[in-house]
């Protein structure tokens, strides 16, 4: 996947990288830099908390295009370390050091 927003979320000593695919970036005019370093608040977290964090820190504009309820909007795929998050417990997955989280939109127009 080409353009990504990188967000290094520091949780204690752990770092996990999340990236938003180019299609998702279309949704948010605020962040269209190719590389975007973002180090921020600490959280001991699972995916649920990560989504909250992304919503608060990355997507200030129209978060409903990305998050709905406490999970991602239908049509957006989540990959944890290149595997389907359905295999990883979805929202309950506990983030670990060096985890790589990718969000991909399958919706028409991002």
């Amino acid at each position: 996947m080409s353009a990504c927003v990188w967000a290094a979320c520091v949780c204690g000593t752990q770092i996990c990288y999340c990236s938003l695919s180019a299609e998702i970036l279309l949704l948010f005019s605020g962040i269209n830099e190719n590389v975007y370093e973002h180090v921020s608040m600490w959280f001991t977290g699972n995916m649920k908390q990560l989504l909250v964090w992304i919503q608060r820190n990355l997507l200030k504009e129209r978060p409903e295009l990305f998050v709905q309820g406490d999970t991602v909007r239908p049509g957006i795929l989540v990959l944890i370390n290149d595997a389907d998050w359905e295999l990883m417990g979805e929202l309950d997955y506990q983030l670990e050091d060096q985890d790589n989280i990718v969000f991909i939109s399958t919706l028409h127009g991002g």
Binding site: S2, A22, E23, L26, G110
Partner: peptide, 13 residues
């Protein structure tokens, strides 16, 4: 597979 994200009429609607 490289893709080029192209916004369309439905983007952000």
């Amino acid at each position: 597979v490289p893709t080029v994200a192209v916004p369309n009429l439905e983007t952000k609607t």
